[in-house]
Nucleic acid binder design. Structure first.
Lengths: 159, 159
DNA sequence: AAAACATACTTGACGAGTCAACTATATTGA
DNA sequence: TCAATATAGTTGACTCGTCAAGTATGTTTT
């Protein structure tokens, strides 16, 4: 026995086979994401920010001068609002973002990138891009396209 | 312009294209994993435990009567040790696991599943399996095999 | 115009991941 | 044998995700 262990089973030192291929697929996605996330985090933390903070800064840069209300940042991150509020607390403390009450709607809090934040992004971007490239460098272009298709199918299949 | 947005760009409401397909692939893996993790968490939390706690309980069940030292649990979870200590605190508080000093090596702490833990797993397993199956139900068998191959390639390519 | 409701956050509390520092127990080497 | 070193875990501090509850501002209804 044990002559047909999948690579994932060996990684997890599993004694028994997965209950089904469906289960194995899900666990493979989770584990692969974990490795990639670590790789990217290592880079961003060299510059003193977490991966999530980097993500928020990129979203703010995309929003430009007019900024973005807190909730909209959350929507682009699959995250709950409370998390975004506190992320912004830290980015503001580091001088990378600013917040101000919305002028038309005073309930909103408009968030903007500072020039310091923009400079940080400019330095960080090429390194992050390099880390991402390196993370999937072993895939041929047609493999990457196929991977994107399969992952898109999974995501759109979640009701 | 904007006539060639990828599905992922639409999901993230991105205004600009990804810097490269490599970047898009990495983000697709991260985002897909996030959705799947949520799906599984919803199920485990119906039973009062988090996904990580479920993961530890499964590892302990696999270890059987003789149990497993804390560090070895960590190895099978892609996680740092301090986290495992605290996870076990909570599992022990819920009566799902026990700990005792190792007999041969007193530095070790041997963790074991309780019968209550085992019964919880027995009830939870079919539901978790169902959730995993449902998460990738839209893939044909050959798609799943391809996906597993691609993800394995990514993981083994991380030095 | 006042009450009812909705929206946009903020705060508190808890689970979890991660790094650094610390304790206790082995193991090794002079 | 005893000091130096390695190993196994725990604790503290900080970041992040998430739920529930609370506050302030807007909108709708009557």
């Amino acid at each position: 026995m044990n002559e047909e262990l999948t690579p994932l089973q060996k990684e997890l030192q599993q004694r028994r086979p997965f209950g089904s291929r469906g289960q194995e697929s899900v666990i493979a996605v989770l584990r692969t994401a974990d490795l990639l996330r670590r790789r990217l985090s290592r880079v961003s933390e060299l510059y003193g920010i977490t991966l999530q903070q980097y993500n928020v800064l990129r979203i703010l840069r995309g929003a430009g001068e007019e900024g973005l209300p807190t909730l909209e940042i959350g929507e682009r991150m699959v995250e709950q609002t409370p998390g975004v509020t506190r992320l912004l607390n830290r980015l503001e403390a580091k001088g990378l973002a600013t917040r101000s009450r919305g002028e038309s709607d005073h309930r909103q809090v408009i968030c903007r990138l500072t020039s310091k934040g923009r400079r940080l992004l400019d330095r960080l971007d090429p390194e992050m891009e390099g880390a991402a490239e390196a993370g999937v460098a072993m895939l041929r272009p047609e493999d990457e396209i196929r991977l994107l298709e399969l992952l898109t199918a999974i995501r759109t299949g979640q009701e």
